[in-house]
Design a protein around this nucleic acid. Structure first.
Lengths: 169, 169
DNA sequence: ACGCATAATGATATATTATAACGTATCAAT
DNA sequence: ATTGATACGTTATAATATATCATTATGCGT
């Protein structure tokens, strides 16, 4: 018998569930805005642009895809890589997005600003990424027993999500 | 009270312990040779060369560092990237080495050929990497409860190892 | 030993991802 | 208005990875 999933993590696997993404997007955007306001940071229009591109889906997006997207809407003056990477760095520092190392790509965080030790399930069929909330107690305990002081943990699980398994049948 | 670490995983955090690395290296090399023999695979001299470079330490090594190392011993005819990447691919497929995604680098496996769901502790001070053995039950259970079919898992924990913490005091 | 199929290597070119370095613009606080 | 901090813009280049095709080595059946 599995323990009931706690209230706080209900949104965790939203990527794999059918949901009103418009709404999801709006909520995440306003949460991000709120986080920046609380921290007295200005979220510049470039940073916002990049964040919005990532909020558009639960797929990871590469820096150069973001760049292309920006250039599409930029008109004639082309934007260069550093601009994207800087915006990404800001957003990561503030915990509004994550980097998916196994893809060299970025994804919006589903609980902006409150993330530590995020863990991802990456569907290699639909390419969507779900973010499990909460720390991994077993792992941290193992590190602890070796006297290892954890700084940052990165967990990326690749596989096939429930939905895609159904379709494959 | 912590459960006793099982026999099988005793070698797990060897990277962070003082040990006779010559011996460690020899053992891993012969284990790798044995694995290839069992699987009726030939371990070519290139592949062996690359493996030996990785066995030299418990540090992750970048593909281009390996390349440089090969070229150092190669004499005048220079070796090109694809050669290294191909050898790395072979070694990874056979579970003789791992890729450390957060570093874009590679490291020898401490239990060659029998690896699944390896988890790494990466010391950002001494740069050594310990490989925890065994799967992460909590994580797999979480994936399972969402109906997610796990394929491959990547766990990389960054921090400071016990030894480096002592030195920093 | 010979020839075939397979797999690994070698070589060239290029794609993809990321950063260094330096100057300019913006904005808020004084 | 001046200043200090931060983000932006621009150019160049570093670092990582792969596509492609020709060549060589190896294992295997005869």
């Amino acid at each position: 018998m599995r323990k009931k999933i706690p209230e706080k993590s209900r949104q965790a696997e939203i990527a794999f569930r059918k949901h009103d993404h418009r709404r999801c997007q709006r909520q995440l955007l306003s949460a991000a805005t709120r986080v920046c306001a609380e921290r007295k940071l200005r979220l510049t229009s470039r940073q916002l642009q990049v964040l919005e591109i990532l909020l558009a889906s639960h797929h990871p997006v590469g820096a150069y895809d973001i760049l292309a997207e920006l250039n599409r809407s930029a008109g004639h003056d082309q934007i260069a890589p550093p601009i994207v990477y800087r915006a990404l760095e800001f957003l990561m520092t503030e915990g509004l997005i994550h980097r998916i190392e196994s893809r060299n790509a970025f994804i919006s965080c589903v609980h902006p600003g409150h993330c530590c030790g995020a863990r991802f399930l990456i569907c290699r069929d639909c390419d969507q990424v779900a973010e499990l909330e909460g720390r991994d107690r077993g792992l941290l305990a193992a590190a602890d027993s070796l006297g290892f002081a954890v700084d940052h943990s990165m967990v990326e699980i690749t596989g096939i999500c429930a939905e895609c398994q159904k379709h494959a049948e």
